[in-house]
């Protein structure tokens, strides 16, 4: 059985995955012995749904500014389209001969293909959504990288104006993503890292204020203040990098399965 790493993908594909598995088992147990019913109508319903997906998918490709999505989505669409064709062929063959073994195999192959193609498509789409969150995380990293050159209150105010909206978006988006994941270990890491970022952010700003204040008072102790600020910056950077790493994980931890 496939493993789905988000609740949305799981809710869409898990029921059909179970049914396809059951069909394969029933088919093997029956050893091609029974007549298949007329599947023209349900196959037509799948074809219509596939045509709609192709249309929507092409629109998504045209409208997207994500080059990786534009590159990956077409092959998932072709896969679903090809599987739909197999189902149509199976239906036509079964009309001629309801006992046809090759038609049954086409039916199973087509059903599996629809499942795999839809899974690939949802995965492409999901990865694109993750890349959007990562872009926001990288903005925060870019802002953190300039913390060490802030030497006046005016610059600090601008730094905060830049950092705060990005940090809020990261917090909101990573928080929502965490709730979407089916893998508890990944969820826990994201929650922990996000909490750390939220805790460290005001402490970093405070350390930057102290550094600026020390500079304006003659600079005694500035090296230690800068060291403290840099330490906090590196801690926050580390947490954001860990968030980026975990956001990209889709595989399951073997230990958890055990």
């Amino acid at each position: 059985m496939p493993v789905f790493h988000t609740k949305t993908i799981e809710s869409i594909l898990e029921p059909v995955a179970q049914q396809v598995s059951r069909l394969v088992i029933l088919h093997e147990d029956a050893e091609d012995g029974s007549a298949m019913p007329d599947l023209e109508k349900p196959v037509q319903a799948v074809s219509r749904a596939v045509m709609n997906l192709i249309k929507v998918g092409k629109e998504t490709i045209n409208c997207s500014d994500d080059p990786i999505l534009k590159q990956d989505l077409p092959s998932a669409l072709y896969r679903v389209e090809g599987a739909s064709r197999l189902l149509e062929e199976a239906s036509a063959m079964l009309k001629q001969d309801p006992y046809s073994g090759p038609a049954r195999r086409k039916l199973i192959e087509g059903s599996r293909g629809i499942l795999q193609g839809t899974s690939s498509l949802l995965l492409c789409f999901d990865e694109s959504e993750v890349r959007k969150i990562i872009r926001e995380c990288k903005k925060v990293l870019d802002y953190l990288a300039v913390a060490e050159v802030i030497e006046s209150m005016e610059d600090l105010v601008q730094f905060l104006k830049d950092l705060s909206p990005s940090l809020s978006r990261v917090s909101r988006e990573v928080g929502a993503r965490e709730k979407e994941l089916t893998h508890q270990v990944h969820r826990d890491i994201l929650v922990r890292c996000l909490d750390q970022v939220k805790t460290l952010a005001p402490i970093l700003i405070c350390s930057m204020k102290i550094y600026i204040h020390i500079l304006s008072e003659g600079g005694k102790g500035a090296a230690e203040a800068a060291e403290n600020r840099d330490y906090l910056t590196s801690r926050m950077t580390g947490e954001i990098l860990e968030i980026i790493r975990v956001l990209q994980l889709t595989t399951y931890d073997e230990d958890e399965w055990e």
Binding site: V20, A30, S34, P37, P42, V56, L87, I114, L122
Partner: peptide
């Protein structure tokens, strides 16, 4: 998202098809 809705429709239609195809096999077993 429209693409999620389209994927849901495919999953539902495929489910219905597979159920119909399974019914005949189940009767035999």
């Amino acid at each position: 998202e429209v693409i999620l809705e389209a994927a849901k429709s495919i999953a539902a239609a495929t489910s219905a098809l597979v159920k119909a195809a399974s019914a005949a096999q189940r009767e035999l077993i």
